[in-house]
């Protein structure tokens, strides 16, 4: 098997997924080929039911594809079946999740919400707490480290959620509508922050979003329709599709072009 280029963090080859059988069968994903490199920030766009969340779940090893191959961080993890039994461990070590409603654990304060991910990875409580405080400090929310999620503003809660997603230095960050609950100014700040942190950690970001105000923060925008990628959007080296005017290219895209 030909070794993967080290910067190809996500590589999907002919990934398919369907739900139901017979007449009730729905093809959620069909023949998906996708490559995302380290440091890249990719948006997944598409109408409701187009397969965005399913694709995110497949990459997050939450939903098993029906066929195809999937490499994550250079490791072949799916080839017609899962090749690793400990998918949660894989998620813990390689993948960070950011949610629309941040999904912080309501019974843990900000520090504990971050530290829990570090502890789950096998670090001592002290080390986990130190790492959590360091991350919260880096995200400029350390002044709220003892606050419970219910007492955090939307922006603060999302920063804490980002800190948790980054806690174990993941190579892949999956975000589901990360800015939908934020106003335009905070949405821009959060996306800039995600971009910066992804670059620092050499990670890629794949985000499902409908938030037009942050399209300019993405390196690439991939459009899904009826479970298929729009022509030309699959491969990293493929030319960028002509985006609708509302999908204006980011400054980085413009520079690359």
């Amino acid at each position: 098997m030909q070794p993967l280029a080290p910067d190809r963090v996500v590589l999907l080859e002919r990934i398919a997924k369907h739900f139901g059988e017979g007449e009730a069968r729905v093809n959620a994903l069909s023949e998906i080929d996708l490559e995302v490199r380290s440091g890249e920030v990719v948006a997944l766009l598409g109408p409701s039911g187009s397969g965005k969340t399913t694709l995110l779940n497949v990459i997050g090893c939450i939903v098993e594809p029906a066929s195809g191959r999937m490499h994550l961080d250079g490791e072949l993890v799916y080839d017609g079946r899962w090749l690793r039994g400990d998918l949660r461990r894989l998620r813990l070590e390689k993948i960070g999740f950011v949610f629309q409603f941040h999904n912080l654990l309501p019974f843990l304060d900000a520090t504990e919400n971050v530290a829990v991910a570090v502890e789950l990875a096998g670090h001592s409580p002290d080390a986990a707490r130190r790492r959590a405080i360091e991350l919260l400090d880096h995200l400029e929310v350390s002044h709220r480290r003892d606050a419970l999620p219910a007492r955090l503003s939307g922006g603060e809660a999302q920063r804490v959620a980002i800190a948790r997603a980054l806690a174990n230095g993941p190579r892949i960050i999956l975000a589901d509508e990360p800015t939908a609950a934020l106003d335009s100014k905070r949405a821009g700040i959060v996306m800039d922050l995600l971009r910066r942190l992804a670059a620092e950690q050499d990670a890629c970001i794949i985000a499902v979003t409908h938030d037009e105000k942050i399209f300019d923060r993405f390196d690439r925008i991939i459009h899904l329709r009826d479970g298929r990628l729009d022509s030309g959007a699959n491969g990293h080296d493929a030319p960028q599709p002509a985006l609708p005017s509302r999908f204006a290219p980011s400054p980085k895209d413009a520079a690359r072009a």
């Binding site: 461990r89 070590e93 999740f97 654990l105």
Partner: peptide
């Protein structure tokens, strides 16, 4: 359940 789903998503093992 939602908190438990979050824990599972971020990688918490069943024993946790």
């Amino acid at each position: 359940l939602r908190s438990i789903a979050t824990l599972k998503l971020i990688g918490a093992p069943d024993r946790t």
